[in-house]
Simulated scan of single mutants.
Amino acid sequence: MFPIRDHNPSGRTPYVTYILMAANVGIFLSYVGIMQDARLISGFWADWALVPARLDQGQGGYTLISSMFLHGGWMHLIGNMLFLFIFGDNVEDEMGHIGYLLFYLVAGAAAGWVQYLSAPFSTVPTVGASGAIAGVMGAYLLLFPKAKVDILIIFIIFFRIFPIPAWIMLAVWFALQFVGGVGSDPDAGGVAYWAHAGGFIAGVILTIPAWLRRGGPSFWERTEGHPPHPEAHYTLVKSSVPKVPRRQQRPRGPWS
């Protein structure tokens, strides 16, 4: 289950979201050529990724920021940029360009700090924009809990798109990160669940002042939990591929 789009176009061009996406893609392309060289990529991670044991020694504080612009592969990058594209524009619309940029960086740094606290002596490098984007998702949950988000559910060969309220999708996502964090070993590598959970909580907390300035619960009443813009409606386009009817085979006799 993962989101593919929301029904809430922003009221103005989300320049910062686009710049962040371009920065993540551009930086990834700058080093993707050395990812097959274990020695070179290990040295690159040592310099720019978040390594908890290094932070514990009072070194590499800048990696709380630099690590959020690095990714471990194409699918890691594409998945993060999809989530940023879906949720970032509406949050930027409410916070303003500069406020949103500061929010994104602080939420990402807070996510990295939570990951450090979960395993302060780990030497496993942490990379990815997931923590900062989790913060954006936390802000989206607080500001627009009833906004419609289309999710794609894939079960073996069955797949279908369902529009659901944002709070359901985001609450399920957060629960999965929390459960994953409890059941994982941060020293073993893999998904940085605590960074995701920490970024999400940081995003909610950092957004509370903006939410209160808009009236808190009365803001939800005025907007019905949706971004203050006309909702987009999508229709599925009927396939132009002709259907070929199956021929009914005649039953064969015992002589065949």
Rank of each mutant, 00 (worst) to 15 (best):
G131P: 02
V191Q: 08
W113S: 14
L141K: 02
I133L: 09
I161G: 11
F162K: 05
G135Q: 05
A119H: 09
Q177M: 15
K146P: 00
V149A: 10
A110P: 10
V191P: 03
S130W: 06
P165W: 06
A139L: 04
G190N: 02
L152N: 13
W173G: 06
D150M: 07
A188D: 12
L143W: 04
V172Q: 13
L141G: 03
K146R: 13
A111G: 15
S122P: 02
A166I: 13
L141N: 03
V127Q: 10
I161F: 09
Y116C: 04
F121E: 15
A111Y: 01
F174C: 12
G138S: 00
I157Q: 15
G131T: 02
A134D: 02
P145D: 05
S118L: 13
F174K: 05
F144I: 05
G180R: 01
S122T: 15
I151H: 12
F144G: 02
V149T: 08
A111L: 07
L142V: 11
R160M: 12
I154M: 11
A111I: 03
A171P: 08
L152M: 14
A134V: 06
G183L: 11
W173N: 12
V127N: 12
P125Q: 09
D150V: 08
A139C: 05
A107V: 01
D150G: 06
F144H: 11
S130H: 11
I168Y: 03
G128E: 05
L176H: 04
P120A: 07
I161H: 13
F121D: 15
G131V: 00
A175E: 12
A129I: 11
A119L: 07
A171C: 13
L142K: 00
I151C: 12
F155S: 15
A147L: 09
I133Y: 00
Y116S: 03
G112K: 02
A107N: 00
A129Y: 07
K148Y: 10
G128R: 01
F144R: 04
I153L: 13
D187H: 13
P163M: 12
A129P: 14
F162R: 10
W113M: 15
G128C: 14
V179S: 06
P125E: 12
L142D: 05
G189C: 08
V149L: 02
A166H: 09
A175K: 07
Q115F: 04
D185I: 01
V191G: 00
